[in-house]
């Protein structure tokens, strides 16, 4: 029996950025981009679910983000996660990787006992690969990054295949452990129809607040209890639920790195020789390249 916590992130679909998404000042209009489940995190969840199937235990997912990230948490439940946590507070806004890892580590301590913490290697909006190891350090955990497969678990030891520069490595690591999962490790399973039917009605605290506000006959506390009993409550943690959190270490203020400048690049060129896409044009280009000894 092993208990896993999987750190997941909802990210803007940066692969599909086109000119329309860029504002005139060179910044990105996030609202124009669809929000997606970061794929490496999904592979991390798949690996955690495989551990649960083979050895028993539970899988909890945790994300820090705005309320709409609960859409992704529901997807996790549809895949087979047992419990979902949304870590959401305006005070977290502007957190860099260090502040984020601090919040996540505090939330994980709050959630409690675990054998594994899983995460994707990196998220496509920043590509930093920092939050996993930073969280491990804060939780005083050992780590295995770039994991591709868990081969076996025996006597509190996990045998893992991981990528390294120029090859692969098999390591044996003691539990508890943080693992980051690299792209291509596995094929995340599709939604389970049964779970979809159940969890499509799952609600976050904010969802229930909205319902309570719209109907004066309903009391928020009762609603939360009702959803908890039905196992349909997506636990929402704010700074108030994490009393040990040091507010000077979160958000923009608690982040050592700051964005000083953002710019769309002024390109040096504009001097490209325009070659017509005709046989004559291409022929001339080849002649130039041959004469300049760049080709041939």
């Amino acid at each position: 029996m092993f208990n896993s916590i999987v750190m997941v992130k909802q990210v803007p679909d940066t692969a599909n950025i086109t000119g329309k998404v860029m504002k005139d000042d060179g910044t990105v209009n996030r609202s124009m981009l669809p929000a997606i489940f970061n794929h490496e995190d999904k592979e991390a969840l798949e690996l955690a679910l495989q551990v649960k199937e083979r050895y028993g235990g539970t899988v909890s997912v945790i994300t820090m983000g705005p309320p709409r990230a609960s859409e992704m948490l529901k997807e996790c439940l549809y895949m087979g996660a047992d419990k979902a946590y949304l870590i959401s507070d305006r005070k977290f806004a502007g957190s860099d990787t260090l502040a984020t890892s601090y919040v996540l580590s505090e939330a994980i301590k709050h959630i409690g006992e675990f054998d594994f913490v899983f995460a994707g290697r990196q998220a496509i909006d920043g590509d930093t690969a920092q939050v996993g190891p930073q969280t491990a350090e804060k939780l005083k955990l050992s780590q295995v990054t770039y994991a591709e497969d868990i081969q076996q678990i025996e006597n509190n030891s996990v045998r893992i295949k991981r990528k390294i520069d120029g090859g692969h490595e098999i390591v044996e690591a003691k539990l508890p452990l943080l693992i980051t999962v690299v792209k291509g490790a596995n094929e995340p399973r599709p939604f389970n129809a049964k779970f979809l039917m159940i969890y499509k009605n799952a609600k976050t605290l904010l969802d229930l607040e909205k319902i309570a506000n719209e109907n004066s006959l309903l009391v928020l506390e009762d609603l939360v209890n009702e959803y908890k009993e039905k196992n349909l409550y997506i636990t929402t943690l704010t700074t108030e639920d994490l009393p040990s959190i040091d507010l000077t270490r979160i958000g923009l203020h608690g982040s050592p790195t700051k964005v000083h400048k953002v710019e769309s690049v002024v390109l040096s060129g504009g001097e490209a020789v325009n070659i017509p896409p005709t046989k004559e044009g291409i022929s001339e280009l080849i002649d130039t390249l041959l004469n300049d000894h760049i080709l041939g």
């Binding site: 930093t128 350090e137 790195t257």
Partner: peptide, 21 residues
Amino acid sequence: VIGRGLAPRVASNTVSGLTAD
């Protein structure tokens, strides 16, 4: 792979700013 595993731990422990890539 090594630097991306090591640098974040050191930054986390020493409360340093770290920028990737």
